[in-house]
Write a protein that binds this DNA or RNA. Structure first.
Lengths: 114, 114
DNA sequence: TCAGTATATAATAATTCACTTATATAAGTA
DNA sequence: TACTTATATAAGTGAATTATTATATACTGA
């Protein structure tokens, strides 16, 4: 584990973002997997704009990055972010949420990460 | 560093609390020092009720605990909390805020921790 | 017991937040 | 080109959040 230091204002802003169950779960999932919006819509049973708006906040903060792949936009954790060490460290204290993706896979709804 | 696991809902609630600059700074200070409300009032140049309300949230979540010492109520980090390992870990990524206490000390306003 | 200091609580106003619905954009495909 | 799918953006709304001021409680010491 690296011990990078993050300004306290910036850290508070990141923690505020992660202080939402939906976004925290997203980020935990993204720590191991890349995902697209429509997968999150399925996982969280939430409207597409709601998901897009959550992701936008994470993207604006530099926590997450996007890459278009044809029709889809694939989101992944931005491991180059100054915040990544702190975030990754934190995610280590959370139980894996990958079962949510497994459920999608079973339903044949997994899309992005082949 | 211990790797304790915290339920994702609970973790989100804690991170939400820490996602406020004032509370995050408080907790960072409390990681090394015990403090009373009036010291925080000085440090943050904020009204006493505002400080009390921030502390109450931290106390309700079990992050912080109180001990009355005469006239004062001394707050400290609750190291027995299930969240403490995660929180402590996180605080390791933040720059020390102890200079804020040193400033108090210089002004002769330090109270609690002799 | 009274005055002063430390803290908590209550009520409230301004702001922010997380959704919603409606609509726009962009890519893929018939 | 027109239709479909994936995603983003905009506008609006109700709930939550963070301050404030006013007031209550608790301890200390004269």
């Amino acid at each position: 584990m690296r011990l990078t230091t993050v300004e306290i204002d910036k850290a508070a802003a990141i923690l505020k973002l992660l202080g939402d169950k939906t976004r925290l779960t997203m980020v935990k999932i993204l720590d191991n997997n890349d995902c697209c919006v429509c997968e999150f819509v399925e996982i969280f049973k939430m409207s597409q704009p709601a998901i897009s708006q959550h992701i936008r906040k994470l993207k604006d903060a530099g926590v997450v990055r996007e890459a278009r792949r044809g029709q889809w936009i694939i989101y992944s954790l931005n491991k180059d972010s100054d915040y990544y060490p702190m975030v990754h460290n934190l995610l280590g204290h959370l139980p894996s949420q990958d079962y949510k993706l497994s459920e999608l896979e079973e339903q044949g709804l997994r899309i992005s990460c082949e």
